[in-house]
Design a protein around this nucleic acid. Structure first.
Lengths: 244, 244
DNA sequence: TGGTGTCTGTACACTTGTGGACAAACCGGT
DNA sequence: ACCGGTTTGTCCACAAGTGTACAGACACCA
């Protein structure tokens, strides 16, 4: 039940946006958690009661479970630019998506009731959170359209870009099997795509690990979706989207 | 600049949720519009200043423009169960999606500033709108995952179900060309799928028109996504989703 | 009634993605 | 250095979706 340090707060760009007096409405009620990849923040169907802020290179993901194929498709990534939990609904409803940790690290957790009280008291706080929720919905909009149009090479490249943008460095843990499930395609097909990207020198791989070697070329190989999302973040929350 | 009649209000299920005193905060500022299919409510990039409530069998859609293929993919349908414009963001940001009229009919328009003032004054109003925005995001979540996993027969069936659910009767205007663009696939492929559904007796078609003949069978042919979305509406906004 | 433009149907050659089977490579533990 | 489980690579037959070209059908208008 430790209170977050100034460094923890600085690790999340949305919190960093807040003025000190708004921050003081939240930080005394925050819990610091160190979570690892695969930990579940909230299960679909559970009532939403908390909000989590990923710090540093911690990374969360929303997944939608598709019954008939027994796969959980990843629909959005949330890193240090944002937060997870009740962002749109303000809580007290069943979570539609499962949110889980994709890259382990530090998370700050606060009760939605605390956040809601703070939003009622502060226009600025309300302002930033509603702007962030607009960016979150933009990301999901774009993903929905992207999934309907772009091929797997483009979408794989896009996923790698989105993931590296939100972590420090250009390397992260992930098996091809996991990546395939995120994207909703067969593992062998992902292997074929990854081999191709590696042959082209855009990425390198180790067992259970990806390394982005040439981010510009990877962006050229991907669809414009990652860039479109980043541009909306810039328009609405100038400078919040992590550099790549 | 006519004020909406009680019948107009009754035509939208979200407004019908509101108590009289909450409704009175909005109706005096509402504009009644009769729009036709293809009319644009807001262009992507324009600042969001208004909210529209579809009435009766009027139907709006969010579309995301994908540059590299020159197609506008449809990401969500909004009928009399909801509203379009600043639902999530509370306005004053550039719209990420274009919203346009898919089935002509009556719309009620109100300034976001009016809606925001009313939300500050009334807990109940805030409650219903944040619950509705949760349902809207659920719909987009599901669409994103659906587009990544389900085949075109299933998605076409799902689209037909979602459209008929929100209109009176089981018939609506739409060319196969338009449907193909909504879904982001080639026209000839849609024709093949439509022919199949027709041979199976699930639908009938006329030039520029679809008629659902056997809704239960169409649901069986579609993926579970339409049903999953409806269930979330029921859980969060009990009874708001239109009957089929 | 015939003409016109839009909408729909069909054929075809091609690319993308699927799913199972199995071999090879990796890496941590002892 | 070897073992064993996980991860990755490759092959293959098949299904799904693409895009062009062109023919036919429909609705409307004159």
């Amino acid at each position: 039940m430790t209170t977050p340090s100034p460094d923890d707060i600085a690790g999340n760009a949305l919190l960093t946006r807040l003025k000190d007096d708004d921050l003081k409405r939240l930080t005394p009620h925050m819990v610091v958690l160190d979570l690892k990849a695969g930990d579940v923040l909230q299960h679909a169907g559970d009532t939403v009661t908390d909000t989590w802020f990923p710090c540093g290179s911690a990374l969360a993901a929303f997944r939608i479970w598709i019954e008939d194929v027994n796969k959980g498709i990843e629909v959005a990534l949330v890193g240090r630019e944002g937060a997870v939990g009740g962002i749109v609904s303000n809580g007290n409803v069943p979570a539609y998506a499962t949110s889980e940790v994709r890259a382990g690290g530090r998370f700050l957790r606060v009760k939605i009731s605390t956040l809601e009280r703070a939003k009622l008291e502060s226009i600025a706080l309300r302002h930033w959170f509603s702007r962030y929720s607009d960016c979150l919905i933009a990301q999901i909009f774009q993903t929905a359209a992207c999934n309907a149009t772009h091929n797997m090479v483009q979408r794989t490249a896009k996923w790698l870009l989105a993931a590296t943008a939100r972590t420090d460095g250009c390397e992260f843990e992930m098996t091809q099997e996991q990546l395939a499930e995120m994207l909703g395609v067969g593992r062998t097909f992902v292997t074929r795509i990854v081999s191709r990207l590696r042959e082209e020198g855009l990425i390198a791989t180790r067992r259970g690990r990806f390394i982005v070697k040439d981010e510009a070329a990877l962006r050229a190989r991907s669809c414009g979706c990652a860039t479109a999302i980043r541009d909306h973040f810039d328009a609405v929350l100038h400078g919040i989207y992590p550099a790549e």
